[in-house]
Simulated assay, not measured.
Amino acid sequence: MSFAENRRIAIVTVVVDDYDRAKAFYCDVLGFECLSDEPLDDGKRWLVVKPPGADGGALLLAEADGEEQRRAIGNQTGGRVGFFLHTDDFARDHETMIARGVRFLEQPRHEPYGSVAVFADPYGNRWDLLQPRRG
């Protein structure tokens, strides 16, 4: 028995402290689209965002429920870069993000795989803004 050929990672959960604060950052600051913001039981929401034009790869913004989840906010990957935002114009997006108050943790650098700079979301999760090298 084998797996289907058409599979992809569709949604990754990011634990946040507040739905509205997270939605404002990802949608208003990073320019993501809100695919769904539906109320669930117990005050929870199904809040899914993704970069515009992206094929797959959305985030479920999940408000922490309990102390264990609150401790994971901002450190879901143990301090490593855990999220990669690809762009077709690094300079434009880097400049726009700085103008919108995004906190970059380093200066842009050019690696064999592309142009990259690490930034943090409001919770401390590390992201790469990355324009992959063509060819």
Rank of each mutant, 00 (worst) to 15 (best):
F90D: 04
G78Q: 06
L85S: 13
G135K: 05
A58I: 07
V16I: 12
D18K: 04
A91Q: 11
A91P: 01
K50C: 08
D128W: 15
I9E: 12
V14F: 04
F119I: 07
A64V: 00
Y113F: 10
T96E: 14
M97R: 04
T87M: 08
F104A: 09
M97K: 06
L130Q: 07
A24M: 08
D88P: 02
N6P: 04
D55L: 11
A72Q: 12
D37V: 04
D20A: 11
V118Y: 14
V48I: 08
G135N: 08
Q76L: 01
E33R: 12
L59N: 02
V12Q: 14
A99M: 14
G74A: 02
A72T: 09
V16N: 01
K50L: 00
Y19M: 10
G82M: 11
L130R: 03
V116C: 14
G114M: 08
F90T: 00
N125G: 05
R103A: 14
L59V: 06
I9W: 09
A54Y: 08
G53E: 05
L85D: 15
L60F: 13
G66N: 03
D28T: 06
G78M: 08
R45T: 03
G79A: 11
I98W: 07
D89K: 12
I73A: 01
R126P: 04
L60P: 01
P52L: 01
G56Q: 01
S36V: 15
G82W: 03
G43V: 02
R126F: 00
E5C: 06
R126E: 07
D42L: 07
L61C: 06
G124P: 10
P39A: 03
T13S: 12
T96W: 08
G79T: 10
S115C: 13
V102G: 00
Q69D: 11
A99N: 13
T77F: 12
Y19I: 07
D42Q: 04
G82P: 07
D121H: 00
K44Q: 15
F104L: 07
F104E: 02
A58F: 05
D128A: 13
P39L: 02
R100H: 06
R109N: 09
D18A: 01
D17A: 15
L130E: 11
W46V: 00
R126L: 00
V29T: 15
L59Y: 14
R8C: 10
D121L: 03
A58D: 11
N6W: 15
E67P: 10
D55Y: 10
V12M: 14
